[in-house]
Structure formats: structure tokens, C-alpha cells
């Protein structure tokens, strides 16, 4: 497999047929491969997220990250866009599902697609990855420390509640990566999610890391934990190879 890749900004069709920006990274070559939708975290469609998109291309996947804030803040700096969307109430769940669905369809439409598409998100994106996998025909989902999949969101959150009532509809195997020192999701909330998925016979695989809290994958933040992040990337690679091919 070549490690040569290309990355660029494109426009795709998102929720409600809206045209939104997205960041696409693809390996060179014509061989068939899976696709990965990367959901950016609440701080935005930023450099760190785009690095992850390119990493998935280096791993052999066509990878695409929709800019969830494009409607409110086209061409704005990621932090300014995040601030604007936050002040306006955030991204509604229904719109998120539509945008991820648009990204999924784009990836399946590529001539290199093998028909399989997974989704991954960190932090707020972790919850949104689970949400998307409850409503879309995805082939794999990865939740990296998403808060409020279980547990009680605060009043004023841009979504109606946690995902407990939607989990019986989960359509894809789920990989969950968590930090034992995290408070949201707490180890108890992760255990509750594990129990609900087991009770509903939903395939899932969870790993919770010692000496790691929230955002342990974030290489530019104090929360970065190299051991947890390195093992997490290995788990993601194994999981996507099993469910997306490659």
C-alpha cells in the first residue's frame, strides 16, 4: 500500500440538501477501500481534526470531515465559528445526522469505495458518532469519550437528551475508547452504556485507559496521554480493518 495521499477542501450535500464544506483526504491509487466520516469536536473544524482525516487516508481509507459550522460561519476561523455556533445554540441532532449522512453518501459514491463507511468522533463528536450510527446505515462507529450518550445533559444543551432511548436502534458495531479519570463520560456512565448495549445484543468493544481523562487523543492539549492514544489508534486500526476492510 502506498502512503501517498492527497487532501483538499470540497463542498458536499449535507442535511436538507444544504451545501456544506468538508475536508477530504484520499490515498492515491484506484484500489477499493472503505470510507471514514470524521466528526469534528465542539471546538470546531480545526487543524487537529484535519490531521486525523489525513491519518485515516494514510491508513488506507477515504476520509471526510463535514464542517458542521459551515452554515453559520462560512470561511471563519475554526474557533470563531465554534463560538458563533455555540452562542446560537449549537448543532441540533437532526442536522448532525443529515450532515453525516451526506458525508457517508459522498464516500460511498467515490469510484474507489468498497461500499463500507465508518464514523468516528471525539468528545462531542463521540456522542454524535453514536447518534449517527443509530440512524444511518453505517458499517462501524467509534466513540472516543463522548459525553451524554448516557447521563443527563444540562438544560439548554442543543439536543433533547442522552441517547439511551435510541441505543436499541444502533445499526453498527461500536468501539468505545475512554479515560478512567474522565468525569463525563464517567466510568459509571461507560458501564451503563456497556450494559445497555449488551442487553440489546449490540456488538461493541470498550477500552478504558488508566492515567487518562477526557481528550487523551488531543496531541496539542495538556490532556494528551501518549500511551492511551497510541493504543487507541491501534484499536481503531484493528476495528476499521475488521469492519471496513483494508
Amino acid at each position: 500500500m502506498s502512503d501517498t495521499l492527497s487532501a483538499r477542501t470540497i463542498l458536499i450535500e449535507g442535511d436538507n440538501g444544504d451545501e456544506i464544506q468538508a475536508y477530504l483526504a484520499r490515498p492515491d491509487g484506484d484500489d477499493r477501500r472503505g470510507g471514514v466520516v470524521v466528526i469534528h469536536h465542539l471546538p470546531g473544524y480545526d487543524r487537529g481534526t484535519k490531521e486525523m482525516v489525513r491519518r485515516f487516508a494514510e491508513m488506507g481509507y477515504d476520509a471526510l470531515c463535514p464542517n458542521l459550522y459551515w452554515r453559520e460561519a462560512p470561511n471563519a476561523a475554526p474557533d470563531d465559528a465554534a463560538a458563533k455556533v455555540r452562542a446560537a445554540g449549537g448543532v441540533p441532532d437532526e442536522r448532525l445526522v443529515g450532515d453525516v449522512g451526506g458525508a457517508m453518501a459522498y464516500l460511498r459514491g467515490l469510484r474507489t469505495s468498497n461500499g463500507k463507511v465508518g464514523v468516528i468522533g471525539h468528545c462531542s463528536g463521540g456522542r454524535q458518532a453514536v447518534l449517527a450510527a443509530c440512524h444511518l446505515d453505517l458499517d462501524a462507529a467509534v466513540d472516543c469519550y463522548g459525553a451524554f450518550v448516557t447521563g443527563t445533559p444540562p438544560e439548554g444543551a442543543p439536543f433533547r437528551g442522552n441517547l439511551v432511548d435510541q441505543l436499541p436502534d444502533l445499526r453498527a458495531p461500536l468501539l468505545g475508547l475512554f479515560g478512567k479519570d474522565d468525569v463525563s463520560p464517567s466510568p459509571e456512565q461507560v458501564a451503563e452504556l456497556d450494559e445497555i448495549l449488551t442487553r440489546n445484543a449490540k456488538p461493541h468493544e470498550f477500552h478504558s485507559y488508566d492515567d487518562a481523562g477526557h481528550a487523551f487523543f488531543a496531541t496539542d492539549r495538556p490532556a494528551y496521554r501518549v500511551a492511551a492514544a497510541n493504543d487507541g489508534w491501534e484499536r481503531i486500526g484493528t476495528f476499521f480493518r475488521a469492519h471496513l476492510g483494508g
Binding site: 453559520e72 460561519a73 471563519a76 476561523a77 474557533d79 470563531d80 465559528a81 463560538a83 458563533k84 455555540r86 452562542a87 481523562g213 477526557h214 481528550a215 492539549r221 495538556p222 490532556a223
Partner: peptide, 21 residues
């Protein structure tokens, strides 16, 4: 820091970049 108290002072009519954070 993992978390901070964040304040955005803005003029939304001037676009997202009209912000002091």
C-alpha cells in the same frame, strides 16, 4: 488547561471574526 471559563465578546452583525475571546 483541560477546561476554562470562556468569554466571547462579539458583534454578530460583523461576522464570526468580530470577537474578543
Amino acid at each position: 488547561a483541560g477546561h476554562t471559563l470562556n468569554i466571547d465578546l462579539t458583534d454578530p452583525t460583523r461576522g464570526p471574526a468580530a470577537r474578543v475571546a
